[in-house]
Computed example of a mutant assay.
Amino acid sequence: MLESLFVPTGIVALAEIGDKTQLLALLLAARFRRPWPIIWGIALATLANHFAAGALGSWVASLFSAATLAWILTASFAAVAAWMLVPDQLDADSEESILRQHGPFVATLITFFLAEMGDKTQIATVMLAAQYPHLLMVVLGTTLGMLLANVPVVLAGHFSAERLPLTLIHRVAAGAFVLLALYAGWQAAQLSGLV
């Protein structure tokens, strides 16, 4: 059960570094200079978004045999590993109109929820929920991973994400997804009777 919490926490924390939502956290911190409403907005938006993604992953897992699901997970983890090597960009102009209209909590809640739609960490949450049987632990883990990556950025708004070795971090995250793909592939081969 703890694996359903700790693996998603680590995977999402790594995947989030340099992600567009981390850049959004930096933008919100610089704009509002009020960290706690931003942190609460990130937490609630991530919980809502990742719970929906996790529920989708659990549902998809129920549609396929264990072997088929393992092959799908293998391909998905490999695809996300490649995707991790492509850095995200933040479209600041589209986010600016929401920032002008609302305070830090509402602006963060809305922009983070929307920014996570179709994001790497949301896709990872779908896949992790399909792989691990404890949906709530997966969602708590992915949310904790998101907070581990974003809270320091919010609290130290002057610390720029560009100062981090993003290329190395993206490669480490890609490597983690490759390991998950290999593990899922090994499980798929076993379930298919290939090994």
Rank of each mutant, 00 (worst) to 15 (best):
F113G: 02
L194S: 06
P87L: 01
V195D: 14
L136M: 14
F177E: 05
L180I: 11
V126T: 05
V80L: 11
E96G: 10
I98D: 12
I11H: 02
D19W: 12
Q22Y: 08
A115T: 10
A66S: 15
F64W: 14
L27P: 00
I110C: 03
G57R: 06
T46V: 08
A189M: 12
I39L: 02
R31V: 08
A66E: 15
G41L: 03
T121P: 02
K120A: 10
Q101R: 15
A81F: 00
Q122N: 08
E162T: 15
Y183G: 14
H50M: 05
T142I: 06
W186D: 11
A82S: 12
F112H: 13
P165G: 06
T121G: 02
G185R: 07
A176P: 01
T108A: 09
H158C: 04
A75F: 10
W71E: 04
F113K: 06
N150I: 00
M117T: 14
L14E: 00
A30E: 15
A48E: 09
A52H: 10
G145D: 02
G157T: 02
G141Y: 02
T68R: 15
P35W: 01
P165D: 07
W71I: 04
A189Y: 04
F64I: 11
R34M: 15
F51R: 09
